[in-house]
Write a protein that binds this DNA or RNA. Structure first.
Length: 644
RNA sequence: GCCGGCGUAGCUCAGCCGGUUAGAGCGACGGUCUCAUAAUCCGUAGGUCGCAGGUUCGAGUCCUGCCGCCGGCACCA
């Protein structure tokens, strides 16, 4: 039985960080879990390498797109290697075999009548050479702040609108197609609103797969990226995928677009899409602008990959957002792995060493512990099957605690002082039971903590390789007696938090620098390379065209029916105050605004927002995911003063 | 604004179709053992179960309203 699963293909515009690692670690765990159940499990990942942003990043790094994408793709590959993640297939969207599959998808959709030529009108930024999807006429580009232009281009479209009913039927018939449930509900709500057709080609992009139906057209991201899941295993009989593991931010593409494409092509649909949550850093979103991105490798170096794997899968309910922090990482490690599993193994083996010359005695396994194990084993397997790793682990740890307690109750160190046959038998039973718990736990944990469990396995003296253990056949009492244990050494040595965290932070800085260099951003920023051609600079006359004035907010009220909109009357030194609507209602209350001096762009095209005329724009700093912050003055300035 | 979710011990969370004294893990404190990685084990921690009403013999557990947080959509000049 095959089990084919995928991670998203990662966009090469950024170097791998812990978020990528999170998804891939989870995928690796599932792959190992399936393998240990006898499946021929194949994990595919890869890199998404086309598009405007990549082209620009390559240019900024002084490389051709081919060179640049190869460097970053290799960085991803190296990352998975280094973290010991067993990736079976790695597909790059620049691979010719992939392009062939993309064309095939298009041809089939076309033949079935789902592709048509139309025109796409959108706001386009000439400097960044990209469409700003969300923008309206007159909007600035979010990348560079320049005004976008309304551009109409000939495009090919996919008739997504024709699939709404079939998609809803799919979600209905296969309730677990999208998981977790919350995500399913979101998709349902989205599709029920009706779908509009999707533009799938571009003439404004050069760096992409040529679009066979039209000259100068290139495939836009959808057909290109998603098809990787098929091209990665082309000709292997692995399609359909059993699982697409994704982050929640790309749910719609996978749960709506992708199945629709496949329906249109008459190909089989993936069986399940699971969207996990985001990894926050101490409850903040990780982002470049916040400078709080964490990489996996420093953690690996200081604490080992398994520490990270354990943390991610134990601390964060898979599917929900989770919070990463170094303190929590070390805390989890010490309490669960060092004091828990590691110590249990250590005390068990050391007693076998001391009291039985390193040979696991034939003893009768304790019935009470056996009963606990008989409950725990299926519970853990069932939880893993549902990808509820944190619950599975929680459950498994009850067995470990029970074993620790049992050992204390039996007090083998006391029994060992006696030599009567019944005492010897009791000691044998105790040691055998403890060792059997270690064996069962190690087998169950092998998919999650492959490296550490392999060590424990050897220490237990098991001869067959750990990965060959069949979890679906795992049962209490299978530990063969009379086997000699291996050399004992701490698998999870206790870690002192402060120095470990300091060390990880230090390595993190280095890793950030190394990755920046890779992306070509190390060249001490753009200013140092003035040799660049049209560098986006403008002359003073261009700036002078923007009329910015100091304004005084006379009144402010929230716009009904719009969370973000604030309607203000602003005095900018004209006879009448101006009516201005701005998206700052989430960050400021009307009371905070009235009487405040703000910067107004006075010569913008007037617009209506929610029916209210807006005659100007309030200048504010806008953070990637944060609230806007109004520009202001430290000194007092007269209303109407021009900024220049 | 619409839709969905959440708000339970210091922290992270369990608590299914309503039913005896509201649970777990971690942390903290006290104690114990000595096989073990200053580990283990035992005990303690007294949380208005967001707030206010309601239904019921009985409500974290159902209903309504409110407050706060999160997400999706609309939307953000």
């Amino acid at each position: 039985m095959k089990y084919y699963l995928t991670t998203p293909i990662y966009y090469v515009n950024a170097a791998p960080h812990i978020g990528h690692a999170y998804t891939t670690i989870a995928a690796d765990t599932i792959r190992r879990f399936k393998r240990m159940q006898g499946y021929h499990a194949i994990l595919a990942t890869g890199t998404d390498e086309h598009g405007q942003k990549v082209e620009r990043s390559a240019r900024a790094a002084g490389k051709s797109p081919e060179e640049f994408t190869t460097v970053i793709a290799n960085e991803f590959r190296a990352q998975w290697d280094r973290l010991g993640l067993a990736v079976d297939r790695f597909m790059r969207t620049t691979d010719p075999r992939h392009a062939a599959k993309v064309r095939e998808l298009l041809e089939r959709c076309h033949a079935n009548g789902y592709i048509y030529k139309g025109s796409y009108t959108g706001q386009y930024c000439m400097f960044d050479e990209l469409y700003v999807n969300e923008a309206k006429p007159g909007d600035p580009c979010p990348e560079c702040g320049r005004l976008t232009e309304t551009v109409t281009e000939e495009n090919y479209f996919f008739k997504l609108s024709a699939f709404a009913d079939r998609l809803l039927e799919l979600y209905e018939k296969q309730p677990d197609f999208i998981q977790p449930e919350i995500r399913r509900n979101e998709v349902l709500a989205f599709v029920r609103q009706g779908l509009s057709d999707l533009s799938i080609s571009r003439t404004t992009i050069k760096w992409g797969i040529p679009f066979p139906l039209g000259e100068n057209h290139v495939f836009y991201v959808w057909f290109d990226a998603l098809t990787t899941y098929m091209s990665a295993v082309e000709g292997e009989g692995l399609w359909p995928a059993d699982l697409h593991l994704i982050g929640k931010e790309i749910l719609r593409f996978h749960a709506v677009f992708w199945p629709a494409f496949l329906m249109a092509a008459g190909w089989e649909l993936p069986r399940k899409i699971f969207a996990h949550g985001w990894l926050l850093f101490e409850n903040d979103k990780m982002s470049k602008s916040r400078g709080n991105i964490v990489r996996a490798t420093p953690i690996q170096e200081v604490m080992g990959v398994d520490a990270l794997r354990y943390f991610l899968l134990r601390e964060v309910p898979f599917g929900s957002d989770g919070s990463f922090s170094y303190d929590a990482l070390v805390g989890r490690y010490n309490s669960d792995l060092a004091n828990g599993l590691g110590n249990l193994v250590s005390r068990t083996l050391s007693m076998i060493q001391q009291y039985r010359e390193g040979v696991i005695p034939a003893g009768e396994a304790d019935a009470g512990i056996g009963e606990t194990a008989a409950q725990v084993i299926p519970a853990v397997l069932a939880a893993f099957e549902r990808f509820e790793f944190h619950r599975g682990l929680e459950s498994l740890w009850t067995l470990l605690s029970a074993a620790d307690k049992y050992i204390v109750e039996q007090a083998p160190w006391k029994i060992a002082r006696h030599n009567e046959p019944e005492m010897r038998a009791r000691l044998d039973a105790t040691l055998y039971t403890a060792a059997e718990v270690c064996r069962v736990a190690t087998a169950l944990l092998a998919p999650l903590l492959p490296q550490s469990c392999a060590k424990i396995w050897r220490q237990l003296g098991m001869s067959a390789p750990l990965e060959d253990v069949r979890l679906d056949e795992l049962a209490w009492g299978q530990l063969p007696a009379a086997q000699r244990i291996g050399e004992v050494a701490a698998v999870f040595p206790r870690i002192e938090a402060a120095p470990a965290v300091a060390r990880m932070r230090e390595l993190e800085v280095k890793e950030t620098e190394r990755q920046a260099a890779l992306l070509g951003k190390a060249a001490p920023s753009q200013e140092a390379s003035p040799a660049e051609e049209p560098d986006g600079r403008i002359g003073i006359e261009d700036f002078a065209r923007v009329d910015m004035r100091v304004g005084l907010v006379k009144s402010a009220e929230r716009v009904k029916g719009a969370d973000k909109l604030m309607h203000m009357m602003v005095d900018i030194g004209e006879p009448e105050p101006r009516s201005i609507v701005a998206g700052i209602a989430l960050a400021y209350s009307p009371e905070q605004l009235v009487g405040r001096k703000v910067v107004v762009v006075a010569n913008l095209q007037p617009r209506k927002l929610r029916g209210i005329p807006s005659n100007g724009m309030i200048v504010a700093a806008s953070l990637e995911n944060g609230a806007p912050v109004l520009a202001g003055f430290l000194e007092d300035v007269p209303v109407g003063a021009r900024l220049k």
